[in-house]
């Protein structure tokens, strides 16, 4: 199903909350998305960066997966 702006805002809030004591992580995530927007990095590049940034946070990774196009997915380490 199609995600809306509200879903994106909600996800950003989730990231901000989880890293409340590490605001740099949230800022890094915003930077990754800005680089994608400016086409400095492509979808696999985003996946690579986000999987490193959110390592150890499976809920954030699974949430991020919902924004990826078909055929793309970050594997969660269990």
């Amino acid at each position: 199903q199609r995600l809306k702006v509200e879903d994106a805002l909600s996800y950003l809030d989730q990231v901000k909350l989880q890293f409340g004591n590490q605001p740099q992580v949230y800022n890094d995530f915003l930077d990754i998305m800005k680089e994608f927007k400016s086409q400095s990095i492509d979808t696999p590049g985003v996946i690579n960066r986000v999987s490193q940034l959110f390592k150890g946070h499976p809920d954030l990774i699974m949430g991020f997966n919902t924004f990826l196009p078909p055929g793309y997915k970050i594997e969660v380490q269990t």
């Binding site: 199609r2 805002l9 915003l30 800005k34 994608f36 927007k37 985003v46 919902t66 990826l68």
Partner: peptide, 20 residues
């Protein structure tokens, strides 16, 4: 665009970053 939902997330992130 190949990843419309990711573009949407990026747009929202850019606006959020600009506002903060």
């Amino acid at each position: 665009l190949p990843a419309p939902q990711l573009v949407m997330l990026a747009n929202v992130a850019a606006v959020t970053a600009a506002e903060s």
